[in-house]
Design a protein around this nucleic acid. Structure first.
Lengths: 196, 196
DNA sequence: GTATCCATGTAACGAACGTTACATGTAACA
DNA sequence: TGTTACATGTAACGTTCGTTACATGGATAC
């Protein structure tokens, strides 16, 4: 049927992973895929449709990869946040996440162009990440802190490529959180009270 | 002398702050500035020269604003990280930082285009931020953690606009760090040992 | 064997891009 | 007053963009 379209979509994803979203142009893309701009429009309707199809397929791949990771949780004693990090920086997943962060930034400035690519999947993507994050802290602020740490360290990893340094910083954060938990849970100390 | 150029640069900065970098085009820009693409090239030599001049002027403004904040440190009891955050999310500074984060992401994918805009100022910008960050922890990983927290929360602030939530999360992080410091400094407990 | 449908090639469209050529104004300086 | 330097307007250059018109192959269905 449209096996040709699926082939094109797979190759298209590879192209996007290495070239990014913001400077995508049909003719160079077609040249590298061994086809023509004419056929890209023929198969996907428009450039926007092409991006939509590619991002949808990409997200499906990413979701299955994340699901596979989540199902092996029994074997590891690591903190969920660290396991999520390990998954994210793995060679097979890192370019995908890199692209998603790029998309996130582009959507801030040009929501009419890139917003639809986000809306299709940002919701369930965020749900998945939060499902993996530690959730024993009820507070919304505390819930967004691990995500922010992850985002900030991933940003630094993308810019510098320094995996060791960023991973260590994440471990430090996890230690901090565990220390805070140990300090608060078993003994309730009246010196540090927290309201509202 | 080139007061006209300086006027244009100021207006150009305003334009960049609201429209972003990635979709900049000379003719719409000139239309909004009340001039022509012809004159933009005349004054700045090229589009690249225009961007370089604008970013240099912008960074000078930002640096003086940051310096002014740093010199008032005696009056406040807040943590340096929190004071830096307050400065960053202030209405006058927020759009500037937003643009710098956009530039950072763009430079990851297209360093040949956006890298020079970063190289002019990324070094001293980072020096300034780290100068303000708490530095009583020697470890490099621990030094990059506050920056990552800041980056991640600022990213969320840009996407969601939720200043209250992100500020609370930052305060939670500061509490965590202070708890960790109190726990480690006065008494040395052999149960939590940390090596290398 | 003829018709139908999907896939593809060639070529062009109109628009927007950064940049440039050429001419003209306008003010300061000799 | 004439010259010189800077500022600006008009128009076009060549290129690339996403998209489309038109024609043709090649397989499958009747």
């Amino acid at each position: 049927m449209d096996t040709r379209k699926e082939e094109l979509t797979a190759a298209l994803i590879d192209y996007l992973l290495t070239h990014g979203l913001s400077e995508l142009s049909l003719r160079p893309l077609a040249a590298e895929l061994g086809t023509s701009a004419r056929l890209l429009i023929y198969h996907f309707g428009s450039k926007e449709g092409l991006l939509t199809a590619a991002m949808a397929a990409m997200h499906a791949q990413l979701r299955s990869s994340l699901q596979a990771m989540a199902e092996t949780r029994a074997s590891s004693a690591k903190a969920p946040l660290r396991r999520f990090w390990d998954w994210a920086v793995a060679a097979q997943n890192f370019p995908y996440l890199k692209l998603l962060y790029e998309l996130q930034i582009l959507a801030i400035r040009s929501p009419e162009t890139y917003g639809p690519l986000l809306q299709n999947n940002a919701a369930d993507w965020l749900a998945l990440t939060k499902q993996i994050m530690p959730d024993d802290e009820r507070d919304a602020a505390m819930a967004s802190l691990p995500i922010a740490v992850f985002d900030g360290l991933f940003l630094e990893l993308m810019s510098t490529g320094d995996r060791r340094r960023t991973t260590r910083a994440l471990d430090r954060f996890i230690e901090l959180v565990e220390q805070g938990r140990l300090q608060r849970k078993p003994q309730r100390s009246p010196t540090s009270k927290r309201g509202t």
